[in-house]
Simulated assay, not measured.
Amino acid sequence: MDPSDETPSYCPAPAAPAGRVPGPPYADCLECGKPTEYGVATPGVVLCPVCEWQDAQRTACSG
């Protein structure tokens, strides 16, 4: 099979993660309010490592 004959993927490439801004000061988690590993100027939703992991578990099983 010629590589040029391959059909494109049905799933789009994952979005690039927002740029991580170093801290301190560190942003508070939007779920639980604990400090995160992200600086306060980091764009987008910032979660602490525990909430990030739990969110990944929820979205991984959402089908």
Results as ranks from 00 to 15, higher is better:
T42Q: 04
R20T: 11
C61L: 07
R20H: 13
C48H: 04
V46H: 01
P3W: 01
M1C: 14
C32H: 05
A16P: 01
P8I: 05
G23V: 02
P22K: 09
D2A: 15
S4F: 06
C29H: 03
V45C: 03
T36L: 06
G44N: 04
E6A: 12
A60W: 08
Q54F: 04
G23C: 03
R58S: 14
W53P: 05
S62M: 09
P49V: 05
P24A: 07
P8L: 07
P22G: 09
C32R: 06
P22T: 08
R20K: 09
S4M: 05
P43V: 04
L47M: 12
V21I: 09
A15N: 13
A41H: 07
W53A: 15
P8K: 10
V21F: 00
T59C: 11
G44R: 04
P43W: 01
P25Q: 10
Y10M: 14
G23N: 01
P25M: 07
P24W: 03
D28H: 13
D28A: 15
Y38W: 09
P35K: 07
E37W: 06
V40L: 02
V50C: 10
V40Y: 00
S62A: 15
D5G: 09
V40R: 08
V40P: 01
C32W: 02
P24Q: 07
C61M: 00
D28R: 15
D55F: 12
A60P: 02
A13N: 07
R20Q: 08
S4H: 13
V46D: 01
C61I: 01
L30E: 14
A13P: 05
A18L: 06
A56W: 00
G23W: 00
D28K: 12
V45W: 00
A13G: 11
P17M: 03
R58I: 13
M1R: 12
P3Y: 05
C51Y: 06
D2I: 04
M1H: 13
A15F: 08
T7M: 11
C29T: 04
Y38I: 03
Y26A: 01
A18V: 03
A60G: 11
V46F: 00
S62N: 10
T42N: 06
T42K: 03
G33Q: 08
G19Q: 11
P22D: 15
C51L: 07
Q54T: 11
Y26T: 06
K34D: 12
A60S: 12
T59I: 12
D5V: 10
Y38R: 08
A18M: 08
P8F: 06
P35Y: 05
E52D: 15
T59A: 14
D55R: 15
P49T: 06
T36C: 09
P14H: 05
S62E: 09
D5F: 05
C32S: 10
C29K: 00
G19C: 10
P22V: 04
Q57L: 10
L30N: 09
C32V: 08
K34S: 11
P17D: 09
M1L: 13
T59E: 10
E6P: 01
G19E: 10
C51V: 10
P8M: 04
M1V: 14
M1N: 10
V46L: 02
Q57T: 10
V50M: 10
R20M: 08
P14F: 02
Y38A: 05
V46I: 04
S62W: 07
P17K: 11
